[in-house]
Write a protein that binds this DNA or RNA. Structure first.
Lengths: 249, 249
DNA sequence: CGTCGTCTTGATCCTATTCAACGTGTGTGG
DNA sequence: CCACACACGTTGAATAGGATCAAGACGACG
């Protein structure tokens, strides 16, 4: 993207100043290493709701990190229907499933206005050769990615009620990790998205929300959710009390 | 493991001579680089059916590659039941979901006698700093791992019939990749394992096998399977004809 | 104000599960 | 060598959980 498409009024933050760095690639780097990493990070114009960060089939030369907003990632089946593979929150890497492939394998779509950092993969590989901490963090994040998919797989084997409970608790944990309220948040995705992600229909999700409200587990109007009874929600989710992992939901 | 537990009659093959190297870490390395890698690879005694390569919770210092035989990997739920996350065939890495974690997160159990290579993770990280091709291959394999889990997730959303068809075709492709017959093989896992992996009950798997035999899609006695009508199996699987990816089943 | 995407709610249906009983095959010990 | 146990597999009948089909309400936005 030419510079003239990069509005100058946007804060040109750097990795050092970024509050998300502990979740991201710089996690364990020294200041001078962060500065080196910062050199290969590009900060693009904001992505608006409904815009694609990338589409399956496009050549893959960069990986991305979400700085603000929210995305969903999904696969497109030959049959034509979507499979939502995840929702991306700030600090999370995007496009990890395409490293080493020539093309993106999935779609990444903005659910709300989103700021994204882009990192040239070739440069990142080179730099990670010189910075052991970066190399380690990259491997760690990829490994976490696999683990997260295992969690997703596990979740989708549970009963519908447990799936949604786990989903809400996991989202809550992720918001908390980012310094946001864990008992009250606004879902960036539709019921349909949640259903697709949890392998349930949107009708089922809707009915579950209704039931959760009736049981006074949550309060909710539209996309705004308040968690009222976290411990009961934990019990319902089937996970041993506390320590719901933020996962990769 | 002390040397006296390593039977001297075992062929001490090396990475250079290994027929699986194209699937494994040495894929794109020069001869001298392979030699360097070979220095940090340990070849342990064979693992017998029912033995664990590792268990969740054990300290994680090495990753493993299967040289022969077959393993299953699974998670243990707090509820006590298993979740089979995959079946490992020769040339595939094991323990990728635990990189950067202190402990293994899953269990790896031999389904039949298995030979395994072990690679110290710290040394591998160090070496991958010096060898760009190794670094790239490691990232690629991890990324493929994520992609494979996406495939698994996708598969488990299909109808029971389609899941099993995809499973069989995927296994077939993986055997072929390894120079084995793709139309005829012996399943290393039980009906229960398949069912668990595909999120179906063993009864359902059994019924499906019966149906597939009656439709003359396959021939099968116990664990021995012949694929009789591959194109119809493809059609049933819902995947556009041909090009069933070996996946990570 | 009307439209479109989103969400809710109800009635019915279907697929895979559950429960149960019975085969089969293999390895072990008497 | 046979009897037994045990893991694995098959088959049937009843059940349930979520999908599907259908209709209508809500809310944001042009």
């Amino acid at each position: 993207m030419p510079d003239n498409l990069r509005p100058s009024h946007l804060p040109q933050v750097n990795c050092y100043a970024c509050s998300l760095s502990r979740l991201c690639l710089p996690a364990s780097l020294t200041d001078s290493e962060v500065a080196e990493l910062d050199q290969i990070v590009r900060r693009n114009r904001p992505l608006h709701k409904g815009e694609y960060l990338f589409r399956a089939g496009e050549p893959m030369r960069q990986i991305f990190v979400l700085r603000s907003g929210a995305l969903k990632t999904y696969l497109l089946e030959s049959s034509g229907d979507h499979q939502v593979t995840g929702f991306v929150l700030p600090g999370e890497l995007i496009g990890l499933d395409a490293i080493g492939a020539a093309e993106f394998r999935s779609f990444a779509l903005a659910l709300e206005t989103a700021m994204v950092c882009a990192i040239d993969l070739e440069q990142l590989e080179e730099l990670s050769g010189r910075i052991p901490g970066l190399r380690h963090q990259l491997l760690h994040i990829l490994s976490q990615g696999i683990h997260g998919e295992h969690e997703h797989l596990r979740c989708n084997r549970e009963r519908a009620e447990q799936r949604l409970a786990q989903f809400l608790l996991s989202l809550s944990a992720r918001y908390q990790q980012r310094g946001l309220r864990e008992d009250q948040f606004i879902l960036p995705m539709t019921r349909g998205d949640i259903g697709n992600y949890l392998d349930l229909t949107l009708e089922t999700i809707s009915r579950l929300f209704t039931r959760f409200v009736q049981s006074e587990l949550i309060e909710c109007q539209g996309r705004e959710v308040h968690l009222l009874n976290r411990s009961e929600l934990c019990r319902l989710s089937g996970i041993e009390e506390q320590n719901i992992s933020p996962g990769r939901h």
